[in-house]
Design a protein around this nucleic acid. Structure first.
Length: 305
DNA sequence: CTCCAGGGAGCCT
DNA sequence: AGGCTCCATGGA
C-alpha cells in the first residue's frame, strides 16, 4: 500500500489545503480516511486527499510546509492549476479589497486558494448545488463518480473520475433520482446531453467576455445566474463572478447595504465594483468565512502579528 | 413537528 | 423584466 513514492514541493506563503478543498469550490476530492467535512474549522489537515488531476489519480496532503503527493505521473502542473497556485499568494491576497469583513476572512483562512476544476464536473456539481448544503453536494458528486465514473487505482485505493457527459446523458432520470438527486435529476441529465451532443460546450462558453459567457451558460438546464457564476469562477478561471447565494446575499444586506438591489444583475454589478480587481476571489473568502465564523474558536492557529 | 440549504424552471402579469 | 409557486431530500 506504499507503492507510490511520495514527492513534495514547497509552497511560498500560507496555504490551507483543507479549506481550499472543503469550501464548496470543488466536490471532487475526498479524504482517504473518509471523513471529509468532518469539521467546520481547520484542523491542520495532515490527511491524504484523493482526487484526479488531468485524468490521473492523485493523493495529496499538506504538511504545513510542503505539498506532498503520490501519483503514477508527474501531476505538478495540473496540481498547481487545480489548487490555485499559479497566481502568487502575494497577488492573490493583494486582490482582496480593503474591507473589514474581507480582512476578517483573510485573517481566519489566510491560506485559502481559488480552485480550477474541469468544466463538466463543475457544471454538474453546481447544477446539483441548488438548495443543498455543501456537505450533501459533495456526497452526491462522490456518488455520481462512484456510480458512473471510471475507476482508477492508487496504492490500493480506488479513485473514481467524474462521469463523462455521454455516460451521464445515458443515465435515466429514475436512476439519478434513486441516487438522491431529487428534482435536479432531469436537469443533470439534460445538461449532460447538451454537452454530449455538442449543443453547448466548454469551448462555446470559454474565452467570451464575462457577462456574455455567463448569459450563454444559463442556457444549460438547471443553470441560472448564480450557478453560471460558480461555473465561470471555479471551472473556467474567470475572476469577475460573485455568485450570489443566500450567505453572500445576507452579508451584502448587512455589510454592503448600498449595493443590495432587487435583481441579481443589479446586486452583482454593485458588489463587483466593491470587491477589488478579482471579485470572485474575495467572494470565495467571504463565503468560506461566513459559513464558519460561528464555530471559529478563539484558539485556532493563532498567528499574532 | 418546522425550517432551511451555494436556486431554477415554469407561468403569470 | 419582475413576481409568484413548486420542486426532493436530509439534517438541525
Amino acid at each position: 500500500m506504499e507503492t507510490g513514492r511520495i514527492q513534495a514541493a514547497a509552497i511560498t506563503g500560507p496555504f490551507d489545503l483543507q479549506s481550499t478543498l472543503e469550501s464548496g469550490q470543488t466536490f471532487r476530492w475526498r479524504s482517504a480516511d473518509g471523513e471529509t467535512y468532518r469539521d467546520a474549522a481547520p484542523h491542520g489537515g495532515e490527511d491524504w486527499y484523493l482526487g484526479l488531476v488531468d485524468r490521473r489519480p492523485v493523493a495529496i496532503r499538506w504538511t504545513g510546509a510542503a505539498l506532498e503527493w503520490r501519483s503514477p505521473d508527474d501531476p505538478t502542473e495540473g496540481l498547481r492549476r487545480t489548487l490555485g497556485l499559479t497566481e502568487s499568494m502575494a497577488d492573490h491576497l493583494a486582490s482582496l479589497p480593503d474591507h473589514p469583513l474581507v480582512a476578517a476572512a483573510e485573517r481566519a483562512f489566510p491560506g485559502l486558494r481559488v480552485v480550477r476544476e474541469p468544466f463538466f464536473a463543475t457544471l454538474v456539481s453546481f447544477v446539483l448545488s441548488a438548495q443543498m448544503r455543501v456537505e450533501r453536494i459533495h456526497s452526491l458528486v462522490q456518488a455520481l463518480a462512484r456510480e458512473y465514473g471510471r475507476a482508477h487505482h492508487l496504492d490500493g485505493e480506488t479513485v473514481h473520475a467524474f462521469p463523462t457527459p455521454d455516460r451521464l446523458a445515458a443515465a435515466t432520470e429514475t436512476e439519478l433520482r434513486e441516487l438522491g438527486l431529487g428534482y435536479r435529476a432531469p436537469y443533470v441529465r439534460e445538461t449532460a446531453e447538451m454537452v454530449a451532443s455538442g449543443r453547448l460546450t466548454e469551448s462555446d462558453v470559454a474565452g467570451r467576455e464575462y457577462e456574455d459567457a455567463r448569459d450563454l451558460a444559463t442556457e444549460f438546464v438547471g443553470v441560472g445566474e448564480k450557478v453560471a457564476d460558480c461555473l465561470l469562477l471555479f471551472g473556467l478561471g474567470y475572476r469577475e463572478p460573485v455568485p450570489l447565494d443566500t450567505w453572500i446575499t445576507t452579508a451584502i444586506e448587512e455589510h454592503f447595504p448600498e449595493v443590495a438591489a432587487d435583481s441579481y444583475e443589479a446586486t452583482s454589478r454593485g458588489i463587483r465594483e466593491r470587491l477589488g480587481p478579482a471579485p470572485g476571489v474575495a467572494q470565495t473568502y467571504l463565503f468560506h468565512y461566513l459559513r464558519h465564523r460561528e464555530t471559529l474558536s478563539g484558539q485556532g492557529p493563532a498567528t499574532p502579528s
